[in-house]
């Protein structure tokens, strides 16, 4: 008898600890972190009528801008929002921000990661041009992994093609 082979087949499971992680979408974050105008819990973010609050930045100025299909160009409306974001960041130097780029589901996974990165960097570039120090801004893309709206129509897709400026305390990002 011819012993062909022996095999050690191992499939295993490991638990990954989520350590210090800016990922708002981790297991404990859930959708609650989706932020801003979506009407989520604003606890701890202050009163949106207080111009120094995060809630003011998120809601009154607007923490996000939207993009056309497959585009990362900033619309005039987006530029207005970002100009106000830059002004606010200029007068609140204790805040840093992570800019999250997102895509709608009508695209392949890897491409959408790269597309979200383009969008986040378009926002970062605009804010830097408006005088925000580049070292206060980080970018990340979630591709199509974290839609804000869940329907499969343009009314949802347009909300999902977004870049969100997520404030954090300086040094704490």
């Amino acid at each position: 008898m011819n012993k062909l082979t022996s095999l050690l087949l191992v499939a295993s499971a490991v638990a990954l600890a989520a350590c210090s992680n800016p990922d708002r979408y981790g297991a404990n974050g859930g959708a609650g972190g989706a932020g801003g105008a979506g009407g989520i819990n604003q606890g701890g973010l202050g009163d949106p009528s207080d111009p120094n609050s995060i809630a003011y930045f998120n809601q009154t100025i607007g923490d996000r801008v939207q993009f056309a299909v497959n585009e990362s160009t900033l619309s005039p409306q987006a530029q207005m929002t970002l100009t106000q974001q830059a002004t606010w960041l200029g007068s609140h130097p204790n805040y840093t921000a992570i800019i999250e780029g997102h895509a709608d589901e009508q695209g392949t996974r890897e491409y959408n990661i790269a597309l979200g990165d383009r969008r986040a960097n378009a926002v970062k570039g605009y804010l830097v041009a408006q005088g925000v120090a580049a070292n206060r801004l980080q970018t990340v893309s979630y591709g199509k992994e974290r839609p804000l709206a869940v329907c499969s129509d343009e009314q949802c897709y347009s909300q999902n093609r977004r870049a969100v400026t997520v404030l954090g305390a300086a040094g704490g990002v």
């Binding site: 008898m1 011819n2 012993k3 062909l4 082979t5 022996s6 095999l7 050690l8 087949l9 191992v10 499939a11 295993s12 499971a13 490991v14 638990a15 297991a27």
Partner: peptide, 22 residues
Amino acid sequence: REGNVMTFIRSLCIALAFTGVA
């Protein structure tokens, strides 16, 4: 179960051909 931790090890030995010819 979240965070379920399991290690799974198997080995399989295969013997071929019992009619003589490979």
